[in-house]
Measured scan of single mutants.
Amino acid sequence: LRQRHVACLARSERGLGFSIAGGKGSTPYRAGDAGIFVSRIAEGGAAHRAGTLQVGDRVLSINGVDVTEARHDHAVSLLTAASPTIALLLEREAGGP
Rank of each mutant, 00 (worst) to 15 (best):
N63L: 00
T85E: 13
G25N: 08
E93N: 10
I36G: 02
R71I: 06
A21D: 06
L90D: 04
G45D: 08
R4E: 09
A87H: 15
L53E: 00
A7R: 01
R58T: 02
E13A: 11
G95K: 12
E43C: 09
V67H: 03
V55H: 00
G35Q: 01
K24N: 09
G22Q: 04
T85V: 09
D73M: 06
T68A: 07
G25W: 04
E91W: 01
G45I: 08
L9R: 00
L89N: 09
T80Y: 12
L9Q: 01
R40I: 09
T52Y: 05
V38K: 00
A42M: 14
P97V: 12
V55M: 05
P97W: 05
R14M: 08
G44V: 06
A21E: 13
V67M: 07
A34N: 15
G32Q: 12
D66I: 04
I41Y: 02
A34D: 15
S12Q: 12
G23N: 00
K24M: 12
I62V: 08
L90K: 02
R58W: 00
L88Q: 00
A31C: 13
R2I: 10
A31I: 12
P84K: 14
R4P: 04
A82K: 13
A87D: 15
V67K: 01
C8S: 10
G45R: 05
N63A: 05
R71K: 12
A31Y: 14
G22L: 01
N63K: 00
I62A: 02
T52E: 12
A81H: 10
T52F: 07
A42W: 13
T52Q: 15
D57G: 02
G15D: 09
G22E: 03
T68I: 05
T52C: 10
S61W: 06
I41W: 04
R4G: 05
E69T: 12
A50R: 06
E91T: 03
L79N: 02
T68C: 06
T80Q: 13
H74I: 14
I20D: 01
L90F: 05
G22F: 02
I86N: 04
V59Q: 02
A34C: 09
V59T: 01
T68K: 07
I36K: 01
A70K: 05
I20E: 00
A50N: 10
I20M: 08
E93F: 07
Y29D: 07
V6I: 12
H5K: 09
H72G: 07
G45A: 07
G95H: 12
